[in-house]
Amino acid sequence: MQEMTQYELFHRLLEEMGETGWWPAESKVEIVVGAIMIQNTTAANAERAVMNIGQVTQFESQAILDLPREELEVLVRPAGFYKNKSKAVHSVLHWFNEHDNDLRGIVRKYESNLRQELLKLHGVGDETADVLLLYIFDQPVFVADKYAQKLYTKLGIPGMDNYKAMRRLVSLDPQFTIWEAQEFHGLIDEFGKLYLRGKGRFEESFLAGYRLDASKLE
C-alpha cells in the first residue's frame, strides 16, 4: 500500500479528473437553494427543483421570499420533503436578509461561531452548514458527506460511520486554499459517482493501492 496525505489525495484526484467547478451554480442564492434541495434525495431530483425555482424567480432572494409558501412547495416538490425544504429556503434567505446579505459582515459578526448560528436555522443540519461555510462564506472546511465517508473508509481510515463521526476525525490540512477546499469536495463527489455507488468499483479506480496517512487528518 502506498501512503499519502489528504493534500496529496486532492492533487491525485485533480490530476486524474480535472477541475469540477463545484458548486455548480451561477449565484450564491442558487447555491443556498441547491444545498437545501439535495438533502435526502438524488442529484437529478434536486436539480429539477432548483430549475423550477430558478425559472420563476431567477434566484432573486426577495423574489423567492415573496412567493407564497404553497407556490414554493409546488416548485420544490420534485426534491421531496417539500414542506420542510420550502420552510428551510425561506428561513435561510430571511436570515441573510436580516444581515443585509452582507456575507463578510456575517463572518465578522459571528467569527468561529458562524457554524453554530447556521445550525440554528430551520432545515440546516451538519452537512448543509458545512456546504454553506465552504461555498457561501468561503471558509475552507471539509464536507464529510456519504461519498467522503465511503472514500476514506476505502483508503484505510476507520470510524467513518456517519457525518458527525467523520467530522470529529477529519479536518482539512491548513495548506488547502479556499479554491482547493471547494474543488476537493467536488472531486470526492465526482469520484464517488464513478466508483463508490452501490457495491462500487473502487478496486478498478486510480486510487486502488493507496491508503491515507491517518496521523495527518486533524
Results as ranks from 00 to 15, higher is better:
1 M>T: 15
6 Q>V: 10
7 Y>R: 15
8 E>D: 13
12 R>G: 02
13 L>H: 12
15 E>K: 10
16 E>V: 10
17 M>L: 14
19 E>C: 04
20 T>E: 11
21 G>E: 08
22 W>A: 02
23 W>L: 11
24 P>N: 08
24 P>K: 12
26 E>S: 13
27 S>W: 08
28 K>T: 10
29 V>D: 00
30 E>D: 05
32 V>P: 00
32 V>T: 08
33 V>H: 02
34 G>V: 03
36 I>V: 14
37 M>K: 07
37 M>I: 03
40 N>V: 01
47 E>P: 00
51 M>C: 06
52 N>K: 11
56 V>I: 15
56 V>A: 05
56 V>L: 10
58 Q>Y: 03
60 E>Q: 15
62 Q>N: 14
72 L>E: 07
72 L>V: 06
73 E>R: 15
74 V>L: 11
74 V>G: 03
76 V>N: 01
76 V>P: 00
79 A>G: 06
80 G>C: 10
81 F>M: 15
82 Y>E: 13
83 K>L: 09
84 N>A: 15
85 K>G: 00
86 S>E: 06
86 S>K: 07
86 S>H: 10
90 H>R: 12
91 S>F: 06
92 V>Q: 03
92 V>D: 02
93 L>H: 03
98 E>L: 14
98 E>T: 06
99 H>E: 07
100 D>Q: 14
104 R>T: 13
107 V>A: 05
110 Y>V: 00
110 Y>E: 01
112 S>E: 14
114 L>E: 05
116 Q>P: 01
120 K>I: 00
121 L>Y: 01
122 H>Q: 13
124 V>G: 04
124 V>N: 04
125 G>C: 11
126 D>N: 13
128 T>I: 13
130 D>S: 13
130 D>R: 12
130 D>Q: 08
131 V>I: 13
133 L>T: 11
135 Y>F: 15
136 I>P: 03
138 D>V: 04
140 P>F: 10
141 V>L: 07
148 A>H: 09
151 L>F: 12
153 T>V: 02
157 I>S: 11
159 G>Y: 13
160 M>Y: 06
160 M>A: 01
161 D>G: 08
162 N>V: 11
165 A>C: 03
166 M>S: 07
166 M>L: 12
170 V>S: 07
171 S>N: 13
176 F>S: 00
177 T>F: 08
177 T>W: 12
178 I>L: 10
179 W>D: 12
183 E>W: 00
183 E>K: 02
184 F>S: 09
185 H>G: 03
186 G>W: 07
191 F>C: 07
191 F>P: 04
191 F>Y: 14
191 F>H: 08
191 F>L: 05
192 G>E: 03
193 K>L: 05
196 L>H: 00
197 R>C: 00
198 G>D: 06
199 K>N: 14
199 K>Y: 05
199 K>R: 15
200 G>L: 05
202 F>I: 09
204 E>N: 12
204 E>V: 09
205 S>N: 02
206 F>Y: 14
207 L>H: 09
207 L>S: 07
209 G>H: 02
210 Y>D: 03
211 R>T: 13
211 R>W: 00
212 L>I: 14
212 L>H: 01
217 L>H: 05
218 E>W: 09
